[in-house]
Nucleic acid binder design. Structure first.
Lengths: 294, 294
DNA sequence: TAAAAATACTCCATAGGTATTTTAT
DNA sequence: ATAAAATACCTATGGAGTATTTTTA
């Protein structure tokens, strides 16, 4: 059976063209080296060297075999190298999901520092709602996601990456747009733009309960799925909206954001992943996110 | 030190995902297999398997390493295969020289049967004079040649591949062109076209001595190096020529070939090669030529 | 005759076997 | 309770060493 040992010995002899010196270089005696080469030749079924007792030369077959051996060793070296990289989560690919609002705060920073630390991991990004992300995670179509909690923490790991107050988005022509702060009660009879509850039940319920705290149920005149759309609808004076603070980063002409006078619940975005996920890439990703949360 | 054994074992376990079955397939017991895999992991510096005592799964790194291992084994297999081919002279390249007249008889047949037997040898053909070929052989620029003997048989192997009588090439308007046979004496006062002696001293001397046998020295009015040119000069009625029989295969309008009445020396073409040449390709070539000479 | 590869043998390192334990299902 | 991997220990194959012979430049 051919072993790498045989190939190593062959390469040494091919390089030195001298069994004695090759043996020395291999830190072994000359006779076993001769034996191993002979054994290799038997296994291969062809001569590697033209040997007279006085001189050694590669056969034509030996020449081509030498080149192949060198390629094989380079390849093995490469395989070990990439194996190590993969084991450290420094190579591979990572499928990331995110809710639309995450694109305006945490996501860019996370991506930047991850790319910096681990440039050989290919990233695949998908803008998805929280429940879609949970679905994809379960199906294994996705590795990590940025969602609006809550999620089932028995199945999924959860790491809160941002908590922010809610603010009111108003058309700039709106009477309240001149004020520094907006009180909840002043919103009682306003038309609301909101997303359908299944998209982000947690955030939805926070907004609704905030309104109840002001003594009313919001009059939802229009629903929209993406945050950009909601803001556009506000600009179009369809209604007002209560949105997470970081939506301010979506500067749209015709829209102003005003803090609420009353203390608001914190809308949060969290990182989720499969609890049992063993992928070093995922762990690397989590480690990097954790490191810059501190 | 990593050996192919380790990789073989790893591939077996990766395939079965079960140490017991893998060991069985490898015709060995399970404990040493576990040991060897562990040893491999130590050498590599990363885990190949996620093992619980009850189940085995490849790590990500293991997955990529598996693919690399398979490539390495395919490549080794390939290396052995081509090595064998080369050793049998079934792969490589062969530089062949030939005198111009050889192109009209033996060369095509030789090439055809060689290509048929050994399609993976690339052929490089050079039309050269006998002495050029000897030069090229000595310099190692050429492997085998078809020459006009004699050559130094101490240095070069020689195998006569064709022997043919000499014939007279006449312009078809020539008074002798109507005869069935031409006698030597009728050529006494004819103008001759001939090649310079150094090109093929053997053949040259045969032609000259043939003329002497007819009682004259040829009146050489024009020299030419290539056989095609000589025949063209005959067609142009510059003179007549004595040429090997196989030149008949060079049918040129305006030229007729006539046998001589007297018995002629045999002009021969021989295969030459370096006596010490060890190349299996050359030996293969010689074997094939020999085989169809019988 | 001197340098280098091949032979003949000896030895021991380690691959592989056997028996057993551990552990997860 | 059971199946499967790990651990402990033992065995023996064959890789490597030493001494010597053979060969040819």
């Amino acid at each position: 059976m051919i072993e790498l040992r045989h190939l190593r010995y062959f390469m040494a002899v091919a390089e030195e063209l001298h069994f004695g010196r090759a043996a020395e270089k291999l830190h072994m005696a000359q006779p076993p080296l001769s034996q191993q080469i002979r054994q290799l030749e038997n296994e291969l079924g062809f001569q590697l060297f033209y040997r007279t007792k006085r001189s050694v030369a590669l056969t034509e077959a030996g020449q081509v075999f030498l080149v192949e051996c060198q390629r094989i060793f380079r390849q093995l070296e490469q395989a070990i190298q990439t194996g190590r990289q993969v084991s450290r989560g420094e190579q591979g690919q990572l499928v990331i999901g995110f809710v639309s609002s995450a694109a305006y705060n945490v996501l860019p920073e996370i991506l930047r520092s991850f790319r910096l630390a681990v440039p050989d991991v290919r990233l695949e990004l998908h803008e998805l709602t929280t429940d879609q992300q949970i679905q994809w995670l379960q199906e294994g179509r996705m590795d990590v996601g940025l969602v609006r909690p809550p999620v089932d923490e028995s199945k999924f790991g959860l790491l809160s990456v941002i908590q922010e107050p809610l603010v009111v988005a108003l058309p700039e022509t709106h009477p309240l747009a001149g004020q520094e702060l907006v009180s909840l009660v002043s919103l009682i009879s306003e038309p609301f733009v909101l997303f359908p509850r299944p998209l982000a039940p947690g955030l939805y319920d926070q907004i609704i309960s905030l309104c109840h705290q002001g003594g009313f149920s919001p009059n939802v005149v229009q629903e929209a799925i993406q945050m950009q759309t909601i803001v556009s609808l506000v600009a179009a004076e369809i209604g007002i909206a209560i949105v997470p603070l970081s939506l301010q980063n979506l500067q749209r002409t015709g829209v102003v954001y005003k803090p609420l006078q009353e203390p608001t619940p914190q809308a949060s975005i969290a990182l989720v992943w499969r609890r049992e996920d063993t992928s070093p890439t995922v762990h690397r990703f989590l480690a990097i996110v954790r490191s810059f949360l501190t």
